[in-house]
């Protein structure tokens, strides 16, 4: 169907194809209809996406709030039916997340610095950037298997430190990505001004560039912390989980995600209830860090 038909030119009008009003109206109507349908579908897709988020959060609040009490934070995990809490899991998660971030962040920071300041289109730089991007999305369970083969199997036992290392491997590429991006945003004139005063390059990077990119780099670290705080799969093979109170890094260590995994699949009602409480805690923590990181980044811009 065409909006224009080759009609003989009427006297006095511009020669050329004339518009058939009826066909034009039909076509325009169809185009508008299609457009309207697409618009409605797009809005529906967004509503569906938001509905899933709302459903997850509502489920967590509904199932988790009921079991939330002080004993959750003051008691360790106990056998079913004996009023246990999640203290050892919470502490274990905090230790492993903090140590994992503490090990991974400096490495990630250095790699990001290398990519932004030193590599300058070199083959090595491009290779590092490529590998880091692949690691960013690599299945975390494989990082768990890798650390198991490297640190657990040869040393004869699961350990908290192996869990920290596994999380650190996940932290590195996240910090690399944000550090490089943020350092690249720093104007060259800032560096030139410092160099003109005779500042050595490393001082320019540490004292000027890091300071100028601070907000963005901190955001990256926060996002990395939020990501590893909820990781379960890599910890299954490294720190394993521990139902007893233990702060030793050389012994199996409890963590919130692994405890949730063990409890959610159990047949005991109070354990399942605690799993929901743990799920609520961890989601609230992770989402809070995410929102803080975003607000911090926005405020810094």
């Amino acid at each position: 169907m065409s909006a224009t038909t080759a009609a003989p030119a009427l006297p006095g009008s511009i020669p050329g194809p004339a518009k058939d009003a009826r066909v034009a109206r039909q076509l325009s109507g169809r185009r508008q209809r299609t457009n309207r349908i697409v618009k409605v579908l797009c809005i529906a897709a967004t509503v569906i996406g938001l509905a899933f988020l709302a459903s997850i959060l509502a489920t967590l609040l509904w199932r988790g709030l009921g079991g939330l009490s002080l004993t959750v934070f003051t008691t360790s995990t106990l056998p079913p039916g004996s009023q246990g809490g999640l203290l050892n899991a919470i502490i274990g998660s905090l230790i492993q997340t903090a140590l994992g971030a503490a090990i991974g962040t400096p490495i990630g920071l250095l790699v990001g610095t290398y990519l932004a300041e030193y590599s300058r289109g070199s083959a090595l730089g491009n290779a590092v950037r490529f590998v880091s991007d692949v690691l960013l999305s690599a299945p975390s369970i494989l990082i768990g298997l890798f650390v198991y083969q490297l640190l657990v199997a040869p040393f004869g036992g699961f350990s908290g430190i192996a869990g920290c290392i596994a999380l650190a491997v996940i932290v590195i590429p996240i910090v690399v990505r944000t550090t490089e991006d943020m350092l690249r945003l720093i104007p060259v004139s800032l560096r030139e001004a410092a160099v003109a005063l005779g500042t050595p390059q490393w001082k320019v990077i540490v004292m000027i560039c890091y300071r100028a990119a601070k907000d963005g780099i901190v955001t990256g670290i926060l996002l990395a912390v939020a990501r590893v705080a909820g990781e379960t799969a890599p910890l299954l093979f490294t720190s394993l989980g521990n139902l007893n109170w233990s702060l030793s890094l050389t012994k199996p260590m409890a963590s919130l995600p692994v405890t949730i995994y063990q409890y959610a699949g159990s047949a005991f009602e109070d354990w399942v209830q605690l799993a929901w409480v743990g799920a609520l805690l961890i989601t609230a923590g992770v989402l809070a860090i995410n929102i803080i990181a975003r607000v911090a980044l926005r405020g810094g811009k």
Binding site: G49, L53, L60, A226, G230, I260, I282, T283, V286, N290
Partner: peptide, 20 residues
Amino acid sequence: TAIELLAAIPSIIYGMWGFF
């Protein structure tokens, strides 16, 4: 931001939500 937060929710939470 809300859509991006879907990516922040830990995998195990999706598992529990999916299962229950």
